[in-house]
Simulated scan of single mutants.
Amino acid sequence: MKFIYWLIKIVLLFVVLYIGDTYLKSLGWWSVIICVVAFILGTRLIDKKIDEYNKQYYFKRLPVLSELKQGQIITIELLNGQKLANRVYMASLSTEILIGAEPILTNGFEELEQGMKKNRWVKLKKVKAIRIETPEHGGINLK
């Protein structure tokens, strides 16, 4: 995926440079400014599309991501078999989620606050399953 991402960006750069060199010679320095602006806008569009694709892919693979709310207690099982149990969910990006670095042993307010001070980013490509922990049922397994 990264190879395709950078290949598209390099191709965009060469296209913008070719257009700038061929069609904008009469504008002088303005052609450089126009090419730089076109390249920046093009890369932002590419980044936005890649982020949308990543979000759709991970929501399809891990549907529980759409149900997560800040402050929920979750357990994450990684592809290597490691389990990150009783962690606090804080936020997510298109390819990573932010959780508490240390497990929360009780649902007390002080424990929750301490767990939110230390955090860790987890790459979604390394996640096998995410489970939301609920106190009354001992956890609902949502893959």
Score class of each variant (00 low, 15 high):
Gly115Ile: 08
Asn54Ala: 10
Lys48Pro: 02
Gly42Cys: 03
Glu102Phe: 06
Ile19Pro: 07
Gln56His: 05
Arg44Cys: 10
Ser66Asn: 12
Arg87Ser: 04
Leu27Val: 08
Thr106Ser: 12
Thr43Phe: 00
Ile34Asp: 03
Leu142Asn: 05
Leu41Ala: 15
Leu98Tyr: 07
Arg131Leu: 00
Ile132Asn: 00
Ile104Tyr: 01
Met90Gly: 10
Arg44Trp: 11
Gln70Ser: 07
Phe14Trp: 15
Gly139Asn: 00
Leu62Ser: 07
Glu67Gly: 12
Lys48Ile: 09
Ile97Thr: 04
Ile10Ser: 15
His137Asn: 13
Gly20Gln: 04
Trp121Val: 00
Lys9Glu: 15
Asn54His: 14
Val127Phe: 01
Ile10Arg: 07
Lys143Met: 07
Tyr58Ser: 10
Leu65Pro: 04
Lys125Val: 02
Tyr58Thr: 13
Gln72Met: 14
Val36Trp: 00
Cys35Asp: 05
Gly71Leu: 10
Asp47Trp: 13
Gly100Met: 03
Lys49Arg: 14
Lys69Phe: 13
Ser31Ala: 13
Gln72Ala: 05
Lys83Gln: 14
Ile4Val: 14
Val16Tyr: 08
Thr22Gln: 13
Leu79Thr: 13
Lys49Val: 11
Gln82His: 06
Thr106Glu: 09
Glu77Gln: 09
Tyr53Gln: 03
Glu77Asn: 08
Val127Lys: 02
Lys55Pro: 00
Val88His: 09
Lys128Asp: 11
Ile46Ser: 11
Pro135Thr: 04
Ser31Phe: 10
His137Ala: 14
Leu27Asn: 03
Lys25Asn: 08
Asp47Asn: 15
Val127Asn: 00
Val16Phe: 06
Val32Thr: 12
Val88Phe: 14
Asn141Tyr: 01
Ser26Trp: 08
Leu93Thr: 02
Ile104Lys: 08
Lys69Asn: 14
Val11Tyr: 07
Phe109Ala: 08
Gly71Tyr: 08
Lys25Cys: 04
Leu93Arg: 03
Arg87Met: 06
Asn119Trp: 14
Lys48Asp: 12
Gln70Leu: 02
Lys49Gln: 11
Asn141Asp: 02
Leu27Trp: 14
Ile73Tyr: 07
Ser26Ala: 02
Asp47Gln: 15
Gln70Ala: 06
Arg120Trp: 05
Asp51Tyr: 01
Leu68Asp: 09
Lys126Tyr: 00
Leu13Ala: 13
Lys125Asp: 09
Ile73Glu: 13
Lys117Phe: 08
Leu124Trp: 03
Ala38Cys: 05
Ala101Val: 08
Lys128Val: 06
Thr134Asp: 15
Gly100Cys: 01
Tyr57Gln: 06
Leu78Gln: 07
Glu110Ala: 01
Gly138Asn: 15
Leu41Trp: 09
Val64Pro: 04
Pro103Phe: 07
Lys48Cys: 13
Gly20Ser: 09
Ile33Trp: 02
Trp121Gly: 01
Tyr89Cys: 12
Leu98Ser: 12
Leu7Gln: 05
Ile76Val: 12
Gly42Ile: 01
Ile130Leu: 00
Val64His: 07
Ile19His: 05
Gly71Glu: 14
Ala85Val: 15
Thr43Pro: 00
Lys60Met: 00
Ile74Leu: 09
Lys25Ala: 04
Gly108Met: 09
Val11Lys: 05
Gln70Arg: 13
Lys48Met: 06
Lys123Glu: 04
Leu65Phe: 05
Ile104His: 06
Lys126Ser: 00
Trp6Leu: 15
Leu13Phe: 15
Leu13Pro: 03
Glu96Asn: 10
Val88Met: 10
Tyr89His: 10
Gly138Pro: 13
Glu136Ser: 02
Ala101Trp: 04
